[in-house]
């Protein structure tokens, strides 16, 4: 079927749903948080690499360490979820593949975050009772 409308006419009304800016701001706020959390995370990884299993459990028993690591996981998974979403939307153009990958991305990020937080809490809250 021939489409007699101009490119501009077709595009009008299909613009932003007026909520996209939330991702833009969220990406940057989580980025700012991750500057500090990532540097702290690298230093912590060095400490943890030396301490072994018991050292890691004791380390996570500190509320400061547990809180910062959970914040790192939350900000990190939130940040990569938006970033990977952008990559998928930019490069995958078949509707079915794009939708499937976007849903998979949500599942992996929410699942990964839930698993990480639960595991960290389990250790952090039991650390005094090894």
């Amino acid at each position: 079927m021939a489409d007699f409308r101009t490119a501009l006419g077709r595009a009008r009304g299909l613009g932003s749903a007026k909520t996209g800016v939330g991702h833009f701001i969220g990406q940057r706020v989580s980025a700012v948080a991750l500057i500090a959390l990532a540097i702290w995370g690298v230093g912590s990884a060095a400490v943890l690499a030396r301490g072994g299993y018991d050292g890691a459990r004791a380390w996570l028993g500190s509320p400061i360490n547990a809180a910062l690591l959970i914040l790192l996981a939350v900000a990190g998974f939130y940040h990569v979820q938006i970033g990977m979403r952008t990559i998928i939307e930019d490069y995958i153009h078949r509707a079915l593949s794009k939708t499937a990958l976007l849903i998979l991305n949500q599942f992996v990020c929410f699942g990964g975050l839930a698993l990480t937080v639960i595991c960290l809490l389990k250790v952090a809250l039991n650390a005094g009772a090894i």
Partner: peptide, 10 residues
């Protein structure tokens, strides 16, 4: 990998 570390630790 961080998630895997947390799971292994738990």
């Amino acid at each position: 990998i961080l998630a895997g570390w947390a799971l292994a630790l738990a």
